[in-house]
């Protein structure tokens, strides 16, 4: 298809444009890609109008929230919003959330035919242990009026008593063919031109996360309807936060002031914590094109500073000290 024609078609679509991750979120069980066994089981449970507490475990962007939403929509129909509470444990991870929001909602009776409400607790593995203990009691006490769907990346971070009270469903990482199916469906409906190579790049860049694929797709489409693999990889590489490598290179070339400036820049712009920075430094050091012995020396310094970072109060000062020691150890080794 001609590029011009594509653009015109896209313009016509402009009126209905919105956020694609929402637009293409499956509304029915049949639409969910790549989790066939789970879908079948959950669908049957839902049909019986009686679901147990459930736990959806698996990587990001594999359809956990989507499935939860489908379940409540199937159960409650148009009144789903009144009977459904969604909480993000990673945003509100204290015990108070469980005690107040969850209890208040669970306490009252459900509206409509179904005798219970549903609480979806996203990223439940981010809850503190105390909060999980509190949650366990709440789950037992309010089973009559309320069912829980927990989602988590790792079920091992959920305390055993909760695991034993839920039906656990393990979501698989999406395979290439699943991702391809999704991409092709969207491409067709949005009139996008996408080659196999582009699909490959999208898949590689997303690491099986469907949300990331769709976001990348939409971002690319906002630049051009003919999406090349270069465009996608440019976007992906712009996401890599922390240009820690550059910071290290400045330091090892002996330019302390620029290393320090760049470090602060990275930390502030991406709001990255000192702990995250030191983790990437530790990884990056091993990839540097320098003598192995020096790598060992630098890693030893990194370890010492990570220890001090935990003990100290000002992360940036600790990282500066690390850079200063790199400047000395590097003696301008990187040109």
């Amino acid at each position: 298809m001609e590029l011009k024609e594509l653009k015109e078609r896209q313009l016509k679509k402009a009126n209905e444009l919105t956020i694609w991750t929402e637009k293409y979120r499956p509304k029915k069980f049949e639409g969910v890609v790549g989790q066939d066994d789970i879908i079948k089981k959950v669908q049957n449970l839902t049909k019986s109008l009686n679901i147990p507490h459930m736990m959806f475990a698996g990587p990001a962007g594999t359809g956990k929230s989507t499935l939860a939403l489908i379940v409540v929509k199937e159960l409650f129909g148009p009144t789903w919003k009144e009977n459904y509470l969604e909480l993000n444990a990673s945003d509100e991870r204290g015990i108070d959330v469980v005690r107040q929001k969850v209890k208040d909602f669970a306490r009252t009776k459900a509206l409509g035919d179904v005798p219970f409400k549903v609480i979806f607790l996203d990223e439940a593995d981010a809850l503190t242990r105390e909060a999980q203990q509190a949650l366990r009691r709440t789950m037992e006490n309010f089973t009559g009026t309320c069912r829980f769907i927990l989602s988590c990346n790792y079920s091992s971070k959920i305390i055993d008593p909760i695991q034993s009270r839920t039906a656990i469903f393990r979501f698989k990482l999406l395979e290439r063919k699943d991702i391809e199916r999704i991409i092709k469906k969207i491409a067709e409906s949005e009139n996008l031109q996408i080659s196999d190579k582009t699909i490959e790049t999208l898949y590689e860049g997303s690491e099986g996360d469907c949300r990331r694929v769709i976001n990348l797709l939409q971002a690319s489409a906002s630049i051009s309807p003919a999406i090349t693999s270069e465009l996608v990889s440019t976007l992906i590489s712009s996401a890599k936060p922390a240009d820690i490598k550059i910071v290290l290179e400045y330091a090892l070339s002996g330019d302390f002031e620029r290393a320090k400036e760049k470090l602060l820049d990275v930390m502030l712009k991406e709001s990255v914590s000192g702990t995250d920075i030191i983790k990437s430094i530790q990884k990056e050091v091993w990839n540097l094109q320098i003598d192995d012995e020096l790598k060992v020396k630098l890693t030893e310094k990194t370890g010492e500073i990570e220890f001090r970072l935990v003990e100290g109060s000002d992360e940036f000062i600790q990282l500066e000290a690390l850079l200063a020691s790199f400047v000395l150890a590097g003696k301008g080794i990187v040109k």
Binding site: S65, S90, D122
Partner: peptide, 10 residues
């Protein structure tokens, strides 16, 4: 994050 059913962290 509210509109798209994900946490702020994600």
């Amino acid at each position: 994050s509210q509109r798209c059913h994900i946490s702020k962290r994600k």
